Computed example of a mutant assay.
Amino acid sequence: MKNILVTIDFNSDEQLLVEKAFQLAKQFDSKIWLVHIAAPDPDFIGYEVGPQYIRDSRASELREEHKLLQKLSNELKEKGVTAEGLLVQGATIEMIMEESKKLNVDLIIAGHHEHGFLYNAFVGSISGQIVKKSKIPVLIIPLD
């Protein structure tokens, strides 16, 4: 197992996922890819980009998310594990599958939050969709 992809969503529980990835990476001398999928730009999904302050706000959010990814990857490097952070824009499941193929990933680590019936009926479970679509082994970590 040479490459581990960890899905990061910045819901304040990414440390648990990173720690599990660290434990596996140490055992198998693996590289960790910390991947955050950001929402696509409004023009990507068919809407006008809007006023400049909206674009500036969005750019600021993306810069902050990128800094957080770099901080997490630097912490892993300090512990002796090779790690890189990637910020990708697009549809979550599709981008995770695409990046997994590009990076030649051997394992995907994702967190799972328990949601109510209505949420699952309308939105669905990201971790469940990853398991359904992935041809790569997936490790789901309960976060609740």
Rank of each mutant, 00 (worst) to 15 (best):
N3H: 14
I4Q: 07
L5D: 03
L5M: 10
L5E: 03
L5S: 05
V6N: 01
T7D: 01
T7I: 08
D9M: 09
D9A: 12
D9E: 11
N11S: 13
S12K: 15
S12R: 08
S12W: 02
S12E: 14
E14P: 00
E14R: 00
E14L: 00
Q15H: 12
Q15F: 08
L16R: 15
L17F: 04
L17R: 04
L17Q: 03
V18M: 06
E19M: 10
K20Y: 12
A21E: 03
F22I: 00
K26C: 12
F28V: 04
D29N: 15
D29T: 12
S30Y: 06
S30T: 11
K31N: 12
I32F: 11
I32G: 05
W33Y: 15
W33S: 05
W33M: 02
L34V: 07
H36C: 09
I37C: 00
A38F: 13
A38L: 09
A39G: 05
A39F: 05
P40W: 07
P40D: 04
D41R: 14
D41K: 10
P42M: 04
D43V: 08
D43F: 15
D43H: 15
F44C: 05
G46P: 11
E48N: 15
E48I: 05
E48C: 05
Q52W: 08
Y53L: 10
I54C: 02
I54F: 14
D56L: 10
D56H: 10
D56F: 05
S57K: 12
S57C: 05
R58V: 11
A59G: 14
A59H: 09
A59P: 01
A59D: 14
A59W: 03
S60F: 11
S60L: 10
E61D: 14
R63P: 00
E65Y: 09
H66A: 09
H66E: 12
L68T: 06
L68I: 04
L69Q: 04
S73T: 04
N74F: 07
E75C: 06
E78S: 14
K79H: 11
G80N: 07
V81T: 13
V81D: 09
V81W: 11
T82A: 14
T82I: 14
T82Q: 15
A83T: 06
L87V: 11
L87G: 10
Q89H: 12
G90L: 01
A91P: 02
I93R: 02
I93C: 03
E94I: 06
I96D: 00
E98T: 08
E98C: 01
S100T: 15
S100D: 02
L103R: 08
V105P: 06
D106W: 03
L107N: 07
L107S: 08
I109M: 05
I109G: 01
H112F: 12
E114F: 10
L118M: 13
N120S: 10
F122A: 02
F122L: 14
G124T: 04
S125E: 06
S125I: 07
I126M: 13
I126S: 06
Q129I: 01
I130R: 02
V131K: 08
V131I: 14
V131F: 09
K132C: 00
K132E: 08
S134Q: 00
S134K: 00
K135P: 01
K135E: 15
K135V: 09
K135F: 06
I136F: 01
P137R: 02
V138R: 07
V138L: 07
L139V: 04
I140S: 02
I140M: 12
I141P: 07
P142R: 07
L143P: 05
L143F: 03
D144H: 11
